[in-house]
């Protein structure tokens, strides 16, 4: 039973965001999973340009301890 979904739209394009703020924890968190990994754009539907910018922003945020490099270790 396949779930049919419409084409995903890049949320940054939709809201006309040209610059992704690496200090905005809310945005960075939204695009990382619980372990702190960056969610691939095949899942989020971001366009290539914004995924690139987002990746840079998340990595900058990690340096500044705004988002974690990794969290919640599983055993």
């Amino acid at each position: 039973m396949a779930v049919v979904r419409g084409k995903k739209i890049c949320r940054f394009c939709e809201n006309k965001i040209n610059y992704i703020n690496y200090k905005d924890e809310r945005i960075l968190k939204r695009f990382t999973n619980e372990r702190g990994k960056i969610i691939p754009r095949r899942v989020t539907g971001n366009c290539a340009m914004h995924q690139r910018k987002l990746t840079t922003a998340i990595k900058r945020g990690r340096v500044l301890a705004i988002v974690a490099f990794e969290s919640e270790s599983y055993r």
Partner: peptide, 9 residues
């Protein structure tokens, strides 16, 4: 300008 718009809430 874009940067300021996105700067921390």
């Amino acid at each position: 300008e874009d940067v300021i718009k996105q700067i921390d809430p």
